[in-house]
Computed example of a mutant assay.
Amino acid sequence: MSSLYPDESYCTSDIGRILYQLKTDWSCSSTVTSISEEKHLTGSHTVYTVEIECNPVASHLVANDVSRRTFVLSTRYKEMTKLHAAISKLHKQLYLRGTFPVFPPGKLIGSSDPSVIQERRHAIEACLNFVFDSEVLRKSRLLHEFVEKAKEKTYTAHEITGNEVFYDNSSSILDQPNTNSSDSDSPNHAALLEPTHEQVSPTC
């Protein structure tokens, strides 16, 4: 299989279809929002929670009131190291511009030290943001396979404000009424906006 998806039909997730678009259509960035330790029978490992924010920037998307979308996934540094190695190799093979971010080497001892964890946190953000800023690498098959596990972050729908639409997490986004209908102007929709837990967004 090719290292790059030849067209959008190969994308199997909402975030994948967004990433396949030009960065001048959708601007994407990543932030490690939390770090936790997960224990198991053979020991423990560090889990990094990554939030990927996708903002519509093309004029036709803004004109149609397309909302910002946010996706969340959890990963280990081990997984990120594999992704980094593969995509940095692809970057070199394709003679793409820019210097691919360097990843700190793995450690057998001291991997749970706060300084090491923070260094890895910044490395994860730098790697993903570099890829998201590349029109070519955004189409990488390995990147799309990596983000497939991401869940879309949604909010309780109490109010429609400006261009942002927040949906009730009690049902699928696809089941919500069209916000352009007259019902969306009903006073019953106005209330205090309160964020709630993450929810899986339906994918194709």
Rank of each mutant, 00 (worst) to 15 (best):
S3V: 03
L4A: 02
Y5L: 09
Y5H: 07
S9R: 11
C11K: 05
C11V: 02
S13C: 02
D14M: 10
I15P: 03
G16N: 04
R17M: 13
R17V: 00
I18Q: 04
L19S: 08
Q21F: 07
Q21D: 06
L22V: 02
W26C: 04
S27H: 12
C28N: 03
T33Q: 04
S34E: 15
S36W: 01
S36M: 11
S36A: 15
K39D: 04
H40R: 11
S44R: 15
H45V: 05
H45P: 01
T46G: 01
V50P: 03
V50D: 05
V50Q: 01
I52K: 00
E53R: 12
V57N: 03
A58G: 07
A58H: 09
S59V: 09
N64S: 15
V66M: 04
S67C: 12
R68G: 06
L73E: 07
Y77I: 09
E79K: 07
K82V: 01
K82C: 02
L83D: 00
A85D: 14
I87A: 05
I87G: 02
K89I: 02
L90W: 02
L90V: 00
K92T: 06
Q93Y: 00
Y95G: 11
Y95K: 14
T99F: 07
T99M: 06
T99N: 13
F100N: 06
V102N: 14
P104T: 12
G106L: 00
R121D: 00
R121C: 11
H122R: 14
A123K: 09
I124M: 06
I124Q: 03
E125P: 02
A126K: 09
C127L: 10
F130A: 08
F130K: 08
V131F: 02
V131K: 03
V131L: 08
F132E: 04
V136H: 05
L137K: 08
L137R: 03
R138A: 05
S140W: 01
R141G: 00
H144G: 00
E145Q: 08
K149Y: 01
K149C: 01
E152K: 12
Y155P: 01
T156Y: 10
A157Q: 15
E159H: 12
E159S: 14
I160A: 10
I160G: 05
T161P: 00
G162L: 00
E164Y: 10
V165H: 09
N169L: 10
L174S: 03
S181G: 13
S182N: 10
D185L: 15
D185Y: 14
S186P: 02
H189A: 11
A190E: 13
A191M: 10
L192K: 14
L192N: 13
E194D: 12
E194K: 14
E194R: 13
Q199N: 14
V200W: 04
T203W: 01
